[in-house]
Amino acid sequence: MPEELKVGCARPVGASSDEEKKPVITGGPEEKKTEKGVPMIKVGQKAPDFTAPAYHNGKFINMKLSDHLGKWVVLCFYPGDFTFV
């Protein structure tokens, strides 16, 4: 179960990507990278793990992608709340 966040007046910190902690990317010289040196996402390869605060069923929780191994996951990004999806 995801841990529940204790939210007071302080704003919880944003998400953290476990990938960015890694010093630099392994892989051959041909490996394509984005401008920030992050490897390009490719189908058939592992989804970068991350932990992020979330609102779920009336609670604030911390969510880790790899906690959902064993299930299908749809990860959906969108520009902003109060817009469409």
Binding site: I41, L69, W72, V74, C76, F77, Y78
Partner: peptide
């Protein structure tokens, strides 16, 4: 608007 389908092994 990025949308990723990730399988039970964590593969995109």
């Amino acid at each position: 608007r990025g949308r990723f389908i990730i399988d039970p092994d964590g593969i995109i």
